[in-house]
Design a protein around this nucleic acid. Structure first.
Lengths: 355, 355
DNA sequence: CTTTTCGAGGATAGCGCTACCATCATCGCC
DNA sequence: GGCGATGATGGTAGCGCTATCCTCGAAAAG
């Protein structure tokens, strides 16, 4: 494959990738044109207030004329500062993390950092590859969102000494800093709400991902504690659907649940999309919500508020998580001490008409 | 953070100690431990089949023992290859680009590249900053998704000589390569569909973004051409809502449209979310869909298929766009010629019960 | 035997930028 | 006027890695 024999009579072999240094304009060239030393050109870019106005103008003009774009790779290598923060999400599919992502993007932009996102996907080896690729690029910080990282990945992150903020979950052993909430408590709170509003035949419809199952566990626990266990198995009838959850799986999930337990009077769904599916199916089969069936979701999509009936759900303040995560990272990068390394930002149960 | 304890008795001022690369293990250190030259250690990582098995094993063991993670910044700087492809989307909020993003991620992973995403946001200066930050990091390729890039941004991209693929749109003057479809034709096709199914009082409900307005323009054009213009203004009653479109704006949009034009018999919505809002509002006010009102969306969300009634919509094959875009980039990076620089992948109108 | 080939490994020289001094005017202050 | 304090600019030496030659020894060819 790596044939170096250029003797072929190929007509105009399209220029291959430029060899070393075939790149574009460099800072040295800009400096030469502006008649200053490279270092002064560098300062004109990075600390313009330390350069005399006249010099600054000359450098700026040279930059303009050449269309120079700094090679931040080289800059980061020399300064070990990249002004880049990398984020890891399992997937951007699904609306769950969108508010958080938006907030991270905004918060980092405001602090002068670029935020870029990688998907860890469903696959552990891909997650490890992503983490390694990220660490290898030496970003100033890493925000992990609900990634179930492998032990290898955790160790690498810890060893890298790069500021890390885990989000969207609460663990006992954070890699570095953490902003999240307790998924178990979400389940407990939803159970409490349903019990308080008179529901007695509770059921769960959940995706099979890690955190959704923890919410379910909290829910089941609370139902049992309230003496309302009524299923012979777990105590609470449960439907489990594959991730990512969709309205479609909500519909089929409800059909399945009702077939097995016709006298259910409330369902806790692990996502709003699932709950919307339940709402659609309930309406399609003439089951009155909330009279005959209470429905609670999780995530507080915009859609949930706009549905008819509006969906009772659990709201996570992604904006605040993002803001705090960004603050953790920026504080660490800029050498300020971080007092609390773990923040539980909680959640709120939003009561609407569906329960 | 904490200063390392020097093993040497050298208590001289820090001038002796490298304070710059406070970073961790380097390839040189790995090489030293494995008793090979740095370049051999490099080869062990990048071209292991050119290193003798015994040597390879020694280097691998050294890597294992030290927890070495290559600094790809330095590697990319030296080799001008980064194995990184950057993507730009206006926002990850909203489900529009998710299939495409997923496909890009998968396709690049399969080809051995990491894909990372940046949001250009609603703001032109933020977009320029993102583009500059991306170019500055010298990725092997850039995929633009529906970004309305400023003239500055376009020029910079072109000047950078980095392979670029624009997607999700068709323009006459691509920066480099392009995979997309015609938004005007989408509008035309939807109008044809509605006219063919006997609708006569057509209306549009659209977000105010660039491409949605082009779909609307195609729609209006086709309605006029069919001799069905009936509004005194544009020819077609139009509701415009701010982006991002939501089910909520779909509901209020329909309310508003009906207040002004009570005898509408079909609405083309610029997104499925908008259309779902129309469906919800129609049902809430007892307007039968599809009998009294035909509704068409755009995007083919999973939700649209699962709704009741299922939504007629326009499907864009994001998976194929992603695959082709990745092929463009990879071909260019690896020096293969690219025959067609522009691909129109078209779209399909999915007829379901809502129209 | 010599000559050629070849595979493994090494030395050198950067990639494009910035940290860390050093230099040299200018300037206020007593 | 002397003198440090400031401010603008420059020289040097890397950051951690890889491209590009090179060397060297052993096997293959003559």
């Amino acid at each position: 494959m790596a044939d170096d024999t250029e003797t072929s009579a190929d007509s105009a072999p399209r220029s291959r990738r430029p060899r070393r240094g075939a790149g574009g304009v460099t800072l040295h060239e800009v400096a030469r044109i502006a008649k200053v030393a490279p270092i002064t050109a560098s300062r004109a870019l990075n600390t313009p207030d330390r350069v005399a106005p006249a010099t600054l103008a000359r450098v700026r003009e040279a930059i303009e004329r050449t269309g120079y774009v700094p090679n931040t790779l080289a800059g980061s290598l020399a300064s070990s500062r990249s002004r880049l923060v990398a984020g890891v999400v399992p997937t951007v599919v699904g609306p769950v993390f969108q508010e958080l992502i938006q907030s991270l993007d905004d918060s980092f932009a405001a602090a002068g950092y670029q935020f870029m996102l990688g998907q860890s996907g469903y696959n552990a080896s891909r997650e490890d590859a992503l983490i390694e690729a990220i660490i290898g690029r030496r970003p100033d910080g890493i925000v992990l969102t609900g990634a179930v990282h492998s032990e290898t990945g955790r160790r690498r992150l810890q060893a890298s000494r790069i500021p890390v903020c885990e989000t969207w979950d609460l663990t006992d052993t954070p890699i570095d800093t953490l902003v999240g909430f307790s998924h178990e408590k979400v389940g407990t709170a939803v159970a409490a709400h349903l019990v308080a509003t008179g529901r007695r035949r509770l059921a769960v419809l959940t995706g099979d991902d890690h955190r959704a199952l923890r919410r379910k566990a909290g829910f089941v626990e609370a139902v049992r504690a309230a003496g309302l266990a009524w299923d012979s198995g777990d105590g609470v009838p449960t439907g489990i659907v594959g991730a990512p959850t969709t309205a479609g799986s909500g519909r089929t999930g409800l059909i399945d649940l009702l077939a097995r337990y016709p006298d259910i009077d409330a369902v806790f769904c692990s996502s709003d999309l699932l709950a919307v599916g339940v709402l659609i199916e309930a309406r399609a089969r003439g089951l009155a919500v909330p009279e005959a069936l209470g429905v609670v979701g999780f995530g507080d999509l915009a859609l949930s508020r706009d549905f008819d009936p509006p969906l009772t759900t659990v709201r996570i303040d992604g904006t605040t998580i993002g803001r705090l995560a960004a603050r953790f990272i920026v504080d660490r990068v800029e050498g300020r001490p971080v007092a609390e390394r773990v923040i539980d930002i909680g959640f709120s149960v939003i009561r609407r008409a569906s329960s």
